[in-house]
Simulated scan of single mutants.
Amino acid sequence: MAFLALQKDGTQRAWAAEHLWPDCTPYRAAGNLRSALCHARRACATPVVETIGQSLRLAPTVRVDLHDAYRAGDEVTAGLSPPPGTENGLIEALRQDLLPEWPEDWLVIEREQWDQLRLHVLETLAQQLQATHRFVPALQVALAAVGIDPVRETAHRIVMEVHIAEGNVASAYKCYQNYKDMLERELSISPSQRMRELVEELMPR
Rank of each mutant, 00 (worst) to 15 (best):
A172Q: 03
S171G: 07
V141W: 01
A172F: 02
D149T: 13
G167W: 07
T132K: 14
P60F: 14
E166P: 00
T154R: 12
R34Q: 09
L119V: 02
M160N: 06
V169L: 07
M203H: 01
A30T: 11
R196N: 13
H133A: 14
I109T: 09
R118M: 09
L20R: 08
Q193P: 00
T25Q: 09
H67R: 13
I148P: 00
A170Y: 05
G10W: 02
L122T: 06
Q7L: 08
R41A: 11
F135Y: 15
S190W: 03
T124V: 11
T77K: 06
V141R: 02
L58T: 04
L107P: 01
S35P: 00
E104H: 10
H156R: 15
E197T: 03
P204F: 08
R42L: 13
I52G: 00
E200L: 10
R95H: 14
E184A: 15
R157N: 06
A16T: 08
E110G: 03
F3W: 06
T86W: 07
W114D: 02
R118T: 03
R57Q: 13
T154F: 03
M160Y: 05
L202W: 01
L4R: 03
L125F: 05
Q113D: 13
A69F: 03
A36S: 09
R57D: 03
A126I: 08
I189P: 01
L33F: 10
M1Q: 01
H67S: 08
R71C: 06
R71K: 11
E184M: 14
P26A: 12
Q12L: 15
